[in-house]
C-alpha cells in the first residue's frame, strides 16, 4: 500500500500541476485525443451503421470488415502507423479511430434494427419519407443502443489513449512510459490511476446520458 500512498502523494503534489507537463494539462490532452478519436470514428461509423440498419443491406460485408479491424492489435497498428507517419499525434489518432469504429458501427445498426418494426412500418404507411423515418422514428427508438455503442467505444479509447504517449508526448500515458523508463513507480501508478479515474467519470457521464435518452414510453405523465 506504500506505493499506492506514494502515487496519491504524487498526484496531490502541487508541483505536478500547472505548466505544459502538468496533470491538468495532460488530462485535457487525454480527453481531447479521446473525443477527437471517438468523434472522427463516429462521423464514419454512425451514418454507415444507420444506413445498414435502415436498409438491412450490406450488413454481412461491413460486419465482417469491422470484425477484421477489431482483430488488429492496437499497439501493432500504432507501431506500423508510427513508422509510416513518424512521431506525432496522427498515428495514435488513426489507431484509436480504428479501435472505436467497430463498437460504434455495431451500436448504430443494432439500435436501428431494434426499433419496433410495427411502429416503423406504420410510420412509413402514414407517409413519412425514408429520411423522416430514420431521424424521427428509428434513431429516437434506437438511441439507447446507439449511445451504448458510443459509450463502449469511449471507454476503450480513453483507456487505450494511454498509448498515444508511446510515439508522441500526449496525454496521461506519458507518466506511465517515462515512469517505467526512469523507475519512478509512484509516477507510473499515478498515471494509471488518473487514466482509470478519467475512464470511470466518462463512463458514468455516458451512462447518465444513455438513461436520459431512453424513450419515455412508460414514464408517468407529469
Amino acid at each position: 500500500m506504500n506505493l499506492f500512498g506514494d502515487a496519491l502523494a504524487w498526484i496531490t503534489d502541487g508541483a505536478h500541476w500547472g505548466g505544459p507537463g502538468g496533470i491538468d494539462h495532460r488530462v485535457v490532452q487525454h480527453l481531447l485525443v479521446t473525443f477527437a478519436a471517438v468523434a472522427l470514428a463516429a462521423v464514419l461509423a454512425l451514418p454507415l451503421g444507420i444506413l445498414i440498419g435502415h436498409t438491412g443491406r450490406g450488413r454481412l460485408v461491413v460486419v465482417a470488415l469491422a470484425g477484421a479491424v477489431r482483430a488488429v492489435p492496437t499497439l501493432g497498428l500504432l507501431t506500423l502507423l508510427g513508422l509510416a507517419l513518424g512521431i506525432g499525434i496522427q498515428a495514435p489518432l488513426i489507431a484509436l479511430v480504428a479501435l472505436a469504429f467497430p463498437s460504434l458501427l455495431a451500436g448504430a445498426y443494432a439500435g436501428i434494427e431494434a426499433a419496433d418494426r410495427g411502429a416503423v412500418d406504420a410510420a412509413r404507411a402514414v407517409g413519412m419519407s425514408e429520411w423522416q423515418l430514420v431521424t424521427r422514428v428509428e434513431i429516437p427508438l434506437g438511441a439507447d443502443v446507439i449511445l451504448g455503442g458510443i459509450r463502449a467505444a469511449t471507454l476503450q479509447v480513453v483507456a487505450t489513449a494511454t498509448l498515444a504517449a508511446y510515439i508522441s508526448d500526449t496525454g496521461l500515458g506519458r507518466y506511465l512510459f517515462s515512469g517505467l523508463k526512469s523507475r519512478q513507480y509512484d509516477q507510473m501508478l499515478a498515471g494509471a490511476l488518473l487514466v482509470a479515474a478519467l475512464a470511470l467519470v466518462l463512463d458514468l457521464t455516458m451512462a447518465a446520458l444513455q438513461r436520459a435518452s431512453r424513450p419515455t414510453t412508460r414514464k408517468v405523465p407529469s
Binding site: 411502429a119 406504420a122 402514414v126 407517409g127 414510453t217
Partner: peptide
C-alpha cells in the same frame, strides 16, 4: 399518396416515443 390516405395498421402501430 400515403399522406392522403388514412391508415390503421393491424396492431395499432403508434409511435411509442
Amino acid at each position: 399518396l400515403r399522406r392522403s390516405i388514412g391508415y390503421v395498421p393491424q396492431a395499432g402501430g403508434l409511435l411509442p416515443h
